[in-house]
Amino acid sequence: MDVSGFMHKYYDWAAFETFVKDLHEGDGDVTVQRDVTEVDRYGAKRQTDVKIVRRSRFQQFITLVECKRWKEPVSRDRIDVLASSIEALGASNGVIFTTTGFEEGAIAYAKAKGIELYVIRDLTPEEWGLPGRHISLTLHVTAAEFRNIQFKAEAFMLVDAAPGHMELKIDLNPNNALDPDFDLFSVNTGERGPNLVGILGDAHGMILAALGKSVGVFDEGKQSILEIIAPCELDFTRTEFHQLRLPKLAARIERIGFAIRAHISQSAINVDRGSDLDFAVMVESYVSAKRLVAHRRIGAAEIVFQNAASSENPPTSAEHPLQNGSLISVYCSPWVGLGSTVANKTGAVLGQTIQVVVETEGHKPQLSLVAQPLPGGTPAQI
């Protein structure tokens, strides 16, 4: 028995009839009865699974419904039986609901007789929205901070008095990325160019993404925090904008070395999109091509109906639809940092320096990332 959907709940004819009756309750001014036995105009007894009486101001319309919780498709002879009951009981029309479909001859004959045919079935993964009702993913949230920032630079005094020991403190925050005191100047023309803190922030994002992509699911997907520490370098030798002007001196920056300490926080995402539903099914006509999704939340009385896309024109899916088992990666901004999180697993990128080369197009920085082996070293696998 398939229990991934909801139709297994209506496993016998009585439960299925009650379910079909519930689908029609509250649809305007109607009276809906289940398992009705009447004497027809010819004096014979006829049993109807569900009888619907719909009233307008001056008239009433009677619909006879047959419910077939069968293992095989409904055949043409059942259309004949229903057509006979419609005529003998003076009903307006008839409908057959089933869970298994209809034979081709039955569909053509029902169209000729004006009888509707519906299949009630569980939703497909596409109808739930891929990857389906049940979603099982792994989430990586990656954050990092810079450590031990060191400048390889040549300083030029702007005042006569030597300043003595100088320290340049750079705080990675969005305000400093807009602070003109951290703007870089062209060594060729003296023009003001990009902001040093902004470049550090962009480099942070590139390195973080590279580290995150290098790590797949670990510890069998269990909740865990992996720490990676890697040596990095920011190379300014290919851009003219690498002069930083301080109150007493100008620094011509060639390279900035630092270590990046990254945490990859892993967690599992397991979602049952039907957990709060009593049911969610497709009600699909084989005559009029009408398709309705019917669902009801647990504890609610009302059944909600929504029009579904035609089976001939299904909704277009993404080029790369989400699949169960996928790894979803989220990268934090450079301003986030690591806070007080403690890793329970370590994996260092040894034997290589992650190098970010800074170039410029006009005044706009262009960054590219390469991995440079350290002398005598080879890249290590995480």
Results as ranks from 00 to 15, higher is better:
residue 270 N to C: 07
residue 341 T to P: 00
residue 70 W to V: 07
residue 134 H to F: 15
residue 169 K to G: 05
residue 145 E to G: 12
residue 84 S to Y: 06
residue 250 A to Y: 07
residue 235 D to P: 12
residue 85 S to W: 07
residue 88 A to I: 07
residue 2 D to C: 02
residue 133 R to F: 06
residue 221 G to L: 07
residue 372 Q to H: 10
residue 71 K to F: 01
residue 335 W to F: 14
residue 110 A to I: 04
residue 263 H to C: 07
residue 8 H to R: 02
residue 312 E to F: 03
residue 127 E to K: 05
residue 343 A to N: 12
residue 62 I to K: 11
residue 28 G to M: 09
residue 373 P to V: 08
residue 240 E to R: 05
residue 216 G to A: 02
residue 130 L to H: 11
residue 115 I to G: 02
residue 277 L to M: 12
residue 207 I to R: 10
residue 205 G to H: 05
residue 133 R to M: 04
residue 102 F to C: 01
residue 122 D to F: 02
residue 242 H to P: 02
residue 114 G to W: 05
residue 186 S to K: 01
residue 268 A to H: 11
residue 288 S to D: 12
residue 64 L to K: 11
residue 2 D to A: 07
residue 18 T to D: 10
residue 375 P to C: 06
residue 319 E to A: 13
residue 184 L to V: 12
residue 341 T to A: 15
residue 77 D to N: 13
residue 220 E to F: 12
residue 360 T to K: 03
residue 238 R to C: 09
residue 139 L to D: 05
residue 31 T to Y: 10
residue 377 G to E: 07
residue 28 G to E: 10
residue 122 D to S: 03
residue 275 S to V: 13
residue 214 S to F: 10
residue 120 I to G: 02
residue 159 V to Y: 01
residue 179 D to V: 01
residue 118 Y to I: 02
residue 231 P to S: 13
residue 241 F to V: 11
residue 303 I to M: 11
residue 100 T to V: 05
residue 135 I to F: 03
residue 19 F to G: 07
residue 309 A to V: 00
residue 42 Y to T: 07
residue 129 G to Y: 11
residue 364 K to S: 09
residue 22 D to P: 02
residue 28 G to L: 09
residue 72 E to W: 04
residue 105 G to L: 04
residue 153 A to W: 03
residue 369 L to G: 11
residue 241 F to T: 08
residue 301 A to R: 14
residue 297 R to W: 04
residue 125 P to F: 05
residue 59 Q to C: 09
residue 108 A to Q: 06
residue 129 G to R: 06
residue 128 W to I: 14
residue 259 A to H: 13
residue 212 G to T: 13
residue 43 G to N: 08
residue 359 E to Y: 06
residue 167 E to L: 09
residue 351 G to T: 10
residue 133 R to I: 06
residue 89 L to N: 01
residue 123 L to H: 03
residue 368 S to C: 09
residue 95 V to T: 14
residue 50 V to T: 10
residue 321 P to Y: 12
residue 163 P to T: 00
residue 366 Q to W: 00
residue 162 A to Q: 07
residue 286 Y to V: 01
residue 220 E to T: 12
residue 339 G to V: 11
residue 188 N to A: 09
residue 358 V to K: 09
residue 114 G to P: 02
residue 229 I to Q: 13
residue 260 I to P: 00
residue 109 Y to G: 00
residue 80 D to Y: 10
residue 293 V to E: 12
